[in-house]
């Protein structure tokens, strides 16, 4: 890879040293410094969406496994139910509902921002905060209702 080489203003007649010559000959401003930034919730929402897609892929593989045990008959499905009802299975199940709600909310945020909407500081922060935090209470609610209805038990 050819690295852009700083030219001390040679190409532009600029003497500030704020411009570099790119490999294709274009002169562009030097990038801001790598370490000068502060944490922002939009960054969390952004990287969390990638993590969510990875986790959702694992979830869908488990879904295909669920389809598989069903297709292989009742005794395999009983095995699956035992596993899903174990503490570890319930923990994974809870995690997958967090991932599902996160996928829906963060996906909606991403699509909204892709259209160019919701990009003012205020709305971007609001959408990111919803996408980052809301999946957890939603998943808790989901499981509280499941337990309360007696559909699932420890």
């Amino acid at each position: 890879m050819t690295q852009p080489s700083p030219t001390k203003g040679g190409a532009t007649g600029d003497r500030t040293g704020r411009f570099v010559t790119q490999p294709n000959g274009h002169v562009t401003p030097l990038s801001p410094h790598m370490e000068v930034w502060r944490w922002h919730v939009t960054m969390t929402a952004s990287i969390l969406f990638r993590a969510t897609i990875i986790a959702a892929s694992v979830g869908l593989v488990i879904l295909v496994g669920w389809l598989g045990v069903l297709a292989f008959g009742p005794e395999h499905y009983a095995c699956f139910l035992d596993l899903a009802g174990s503490p570890l299975g319930l923990f994974v199940g809870f995690g997958l509902t967090v991932v599902l709600f996160s996928f829906i909310l963060n996906g909606a945020r991403h699509l909204t921002n892709d259209t160019g909407a919701g990009l003012t500081l205020k709305s971007a922060n609001l959408l990111s905060n919803i996408a980052v935090w809301a999946p957890v209470p939603l998943a808790v609610l989901f499981w509280v209702v499941l337990f309360a209805a007696g559909r699932v038990s420890l």
Partner: peptide, 14 residues
């Protein structure tokens, strides 16, 4: 589809 999947998961859990 994800919202529908969530309702399905709720219906078919256990």
């Amino acid at each position: 589809l994800g919202l529908w999947l969530a309702s399905t998961a709720f219906t078919l859990a256990g």
